[in-house]
Design a protein around this nucleic acid. Structure first.
Ligand SMILES: [Mn+2]
Ligand SMILES: [Mn+2]
Ligand SMILES: [Zn+2]
Ligand SMILES: [Zn+2]
Lengths: 144, 144
DNA sequence: TCAATAATTTAGAATTATTTTAATGAAAAA
DNA sequence: TTTTTCATTAAAATAATTCTAAATTATTGA
């Protein structure tokens, strides 16, 4: 029988998830997976996730947060968003969708993939294939 | 009568252009305006433009290149593109259009605005207005 | 169960992009 | 011309991210 003091707050099996994408289930990776994926959709930066982990009592370095986020992206667990120069956002929603980006606050909001019809794209240049189509709707405070 | 040795290669009146957007026509700003706008559409980074200016014999610092690019964006002469984390591109094509971004080479290619139909966008969040819709078609080497 | 091996984590340094500062120089106004 | 305003610059500062190399941890398979 396993004592309960190790898995307080674990809603899902992060070990199994990590194993399923060929990543060793280390303490740090499990903690980040839980912080990121326990709740619904999130758009977060490495810096903020690091602070959140420390606040939750997880001992982890910022370098490991960056490493892990990139590993999760490579494994398909996360998506990296580029909307703001000099700041990388990571998105826990990996399904087909787009974004509102608030230029004043830096907030991101999902737009369901089927709420945007991108029609009649030209062909990709020679020898290239389309890897993704990103639609970013930039919004800001109403001047009215 | 004005001697010719000062304006070799100037195809257009950069002084008038700068005056028209309320920027003083300094040597540095005229040189950058000419490098950027003499030829057709360009997608360039500050670093590359700086090198290009030095190669053309223009004495200018990188800080001034950054300042000037941002001033040109504010004045509507350029557009800033965010497609790649940690690298800002400036686009001399300020008309409505979108982009192919080659993830392998970093190259950008224009897609005419009317070649992409973005239909049925949801409303902007409360108190916000849409400032721009960017469509980025990411491409990479064909795996086939 | 326990080394041996391989993978991971980390502190700290390094890199890269960009901005700020504060002093100097150039353009416009008076 | 003289003054005022704005622009340029070198250098330092900041911020995000990545690299390095040593220390730690996870997995494997006697
Ligand atoms: Mn990245
Ligand atoms: Mn910028
Ligand atoms: Zn999202
Ligand atoms: Zn363009």
């Amino acid at each position: 029988m396993k004592s309960a003091h190790q898995d307080v707050g674990n809603q899902f099996d992060s070990t199994a998830l990590l194993r399923s994408v060929n990543l060793r289930p280390t303490r740090q990776r499990k903690a980040l997976a839980e912080l990121l994926l326990r709740h619904g959709d999130r758009h977060i930066t490495a810096e903020l996730l690091h602070e959140e982990a420390l606040r939750a009592g997880v001992k982890i370095s910022l370098a490991t947060v960056y490493n892990t986020l990139h590993q999760f992206v490579d494994a398909g667990l996360l998506r990296e968003l580029v909307v703001d120069s000099g700041r990388a956002y990571f998105d826990t929603n990996t399904s087909h969708h787009h974004h509102f980006f608030d230029e004043d606050t830096g907030a991101l909001m999902d737009i369901p993939g089927d709420a945007v019809a991108v029609g009649s794209l030209p062909h990709a240049p020679n020898g290239r294939q389309i890897s993704r189509v990103d639609v970013i709707v930039r919004v800001r405070k109403d001047d009215a």
